[in-house]
Design a protein around this nucleic acid. Structure first.
Lengths: 239, 239
DNA sequence: CGTAGTATGTACGCTAGCGCACAATATGGC
DNA sequence: GCCATATTGTGCGCTAGCGTACATACTACG
């Protein structure tokens, strides 16, 4: 697991800011630990802070009337939670819960808004991130329609892996199922196949990835699309 | 069909601008007719213009490696095409094609960008729209996972209806199927049920909605969520 | 060290939607 | 008015994933 003390630049958005800009924000950035399962925002709820994860992962998901749910995107150290604060409307129908315990830096909403409205590099970075998030959500929509549970599991594992500095995720099959919006048994079956192929190993809430390349052989194209889009959008973000 | 001459304020985003702002843009807004099937943007392609539909409807969709496709959102008179121009990155993996022929006002990309960067009411309106678009895409993702073809067809018909001033859509079942990312036969079946219930009537590429309330009885919650979110975000947009 | 409770494995019938094949019917262009 | 073509109807068998039920196995905690 992640034992390093958190650093500002472990969050890619903070890291993408010009040093002077980050320096200015530092005194307002508060480090907080987020426990697994913590609900940061319910549907229609208002966030008081925006969160920049370093080691935590937050899941953006919807809960339907019949109780079933689906993740539309995850937010890890590549992003932030709380875009509705600067996009307008202040809240969304989305839920946000902690999917992997860890640390975030947080910033008071009004302060972020004020900074955003300066229109400088921070605005640029946040809008780019929002664009990347849209791609992620869109790809989830398409993937939900056309790809198998096994493919989607691989996508989800890879995206989660990219947000951690570890090959092990603390995660029950039940939880993964609710993220993907499928039955727990569906995950048991798909994960069983991957384990037989010696791509992953799991025991009661711990999944270890043995062979990342193996995941990439089983994943659908959706992972690559999202990954490349994030890379592309942040490669030249400072220009 | 729509025989009125197009007006600027038929597009809700343009209508939401303060009169002075709209006045300033008018001389740059060019009215163009968009024929059915026109591809405005391929995956990774760059738009030279942004488009504000009045009577046209544009579909944002993905095409997968295996050739299947799915719409992630539609853009009608409630919105605009080309958010990536101001969000950053200039292009996206999304395709944009004309789903219903009609008119759009278009604006040169660099000009829009310049206006956006003023940070005034236009920026506010465009960001709010983007937020609403995110809700629409998210809801599509969830709907794809959990709802039946019939429910999704109703959602799609209602959303499309809201963008037209007409009860009749010019639309083959084949086209609807490719939007929803399902088989054409699936649409034939679902549409058959709706026709038997006297909710719609169709003949070779023309669908007439006889009973809008009937559609709302068969639709899933997703329609309402999207609809309400658009209403909410634009109710107070000028404040 | 035993046990309660959580997590995972497995089985079975069921349904929605798929893929394919082909029939039937409408419509616009000649 | 006729025909080529686009559109819609229908009928298979098939599969992925669902819902349910219950068995097993791990592990944390007393």
């Amino acid at each position: 697991m992640q034992n390093h003390p958190p650093q500002f630049n472990q969050n890619h958005l903070l890291a993408a800011l010009p040093p002077a800009e980050l320096e200015r924000l530092k005194s307002h950035l508060e480090l907080v630990h987020m426990p697994l399962g913590d609900v940061l925002c319910e549907s229609g709820g208002r966030l008081s802070y925006v969160y920049f994860p370093t080691s935590a992962i937050i899941s953006l998901h919807y809960i339907l009337e019949n109780g079933s749910s689906s993740e539309v995107a995850g937010v890890g150290n590549e992003g932030m939670l709380g875009i509705s604060l600067f996009m307008g409307g202040e809240n969304t129908p989305t839920w946000a819960t902690v999917q992997t315990a860890g640390y975030c830096y947080r910033l008071k909403g009004p302060l972020l808004l004020q900074e955003f409205n300066q229109g400088g590099p921070l605005q640029r970075v946040l809008l780019r991130y929002t664009q990347a998030l849209i791609t992620q959500i869109s790809q989830t929509a398409v993937c939900n329609r056309h790809h198998t549970i096994e493919q989607q599991l691989c996508r989800w594992l890879l995206l989660t892996l990219d947000r951690l500095n570890s090959q092990e995720l603390v995660m029950t099959q039940e939880l993964i199922a609710s993220m993907l919006g499928v039955r727990r048994e569906g995950i048991t079956e798909a994960a069983g196949k991957l384990q037989q192929a010696e791509i992953i190993r799991y025991r009661r809430g711990h999944i270890t990835v043995l062979n990342r390349a193996g995941l990439q052989e089983h994943v659908c194209e959706c992972y690559d699309v999202v990954k490349k889009e994030f890379d592309r959008l942040f490669r030249d973000v400072r220009k």
